[in-house]
């Protein structure tokens, strides 16, 4: 412990609370408050109502939630498959080869998402493959953006995996494919689910590439939230944002339950 006096500790905690609460806790609390507000002109909202949630859970808004969930599901499955494959393949390469694969798969993190959106728009608006204005392109963009995170967490887990397991399996006569399926993937399962949760959450909140690509019949939740706030319906936007956060948290929670089960077996 760095500070030994009682007074000093309380002073520091007070500073921490003053910095932490308004900066991090307040925004989330305010959004939740606003989502119930019928009216907000003074210090606090008034005329609390649930009608924003009614609006947020039917019609186009409900479609937007479904769209977001489906997009996130598709994107994280693609990202998980591609990222895991690449991470496993990279772990068998030499140092130089692994660096190249690392750099290429982490590149989407560095490129602005808007530019990823623009690039996909430019590439798939002309033959041979025209995907312009399809939901496929949105899912693809999300997959490109989140694959880096899947790759990163799976390759970290592969590095941590004790080679003794693989060798023990091989000494027992298991071929490489059998080792992968029965030993390596089960041992990586906790990391795989963690990566899937992360990809899902990131995809749920993706806005920058989506605004470049989304067709009118495939409008994800963040775009709806933007549209609502932009036309002045801030309280509806807040309710949609709460729905988005709740959905994300629910999925993350479910994934962490799976992960605990997998790692305690």
């Amino acid at each position: 412990m760095l500070v030994h006096s009682r007074k000093g500790r309380w002073a520091l905690w007070a500073v921490f609370a003053v910095l932490f609460l308004p900066v991090f806790a307040l925004p989330l609390a305010v959004i939740v408050m606003a989502s119930f507000a019928g009216h907000w002109s003074g210090a606090f909202p008034s005329a609390f109502t649930g009608e924003h949630y009614e609006a947020a859970t039917r019609g186009e808004s409900l479609d937007a939630l479904t769209t977001s969930l489906l997009t996130a599901l598709g994107a994280s499955l693609i990202a998980l498959a591609a990222g895991t494959w690449a991470a496993l393949a990279a772990s068998r390469l030499g140092k130089g080869g692994r660096r190249v694969v690392d750099a290429l798969f982490m590149l989407p993190v560095a490129v602005p998402s808007v530019v990823v959106g623009l690039a996909l728009l430019v590439a798939f608006s002309k033959p041979p493959v025209i995907l312009n204005g399809t939901s496929t392109l949105v899912v693809l963009a999300h997959a490109v953006l989140v694959t880096a995170f899947a790759y990163q967490s799976v390759s970290a887990a592969v590095r941590r995996l004790d080679p003794a397991y693989e060798q023990a399996a091989a000494s027992l006569g298991a071929r490489p494919a059998y080792v992968l399926w029965r030993v390596k993937l089960p041992l990586l399962l906790p990391s795989l689910t963690a990566a899937a949760g992360l990809c899902f959450a990131l995809s749920m909140g993706e806005l920058s590439a989506t605004v470049m690509l989304y067709p009118p019949d495939w409008t994800p939740l963040p775009v709806r939230i933007y549209a609502a706030t932009d036309r002045g319906a801030a309280f509806t936007g807040a309710a949609l944002a709460v729905v988005l956060m709740a959905a994300t948290l629910l999925v993350l929670f479910a994934v962490s339950r799976v992960r605990t089960r997998a790692s305690y077996r």
Partner: peptide, 8 residues
């Protein structure tokens, strides 16, 4: 040395 029993 560390047995490498499959934990799962």
């Amino acid at each position: 040395q560390q047995y490498a029993l499959f934990p799962h």
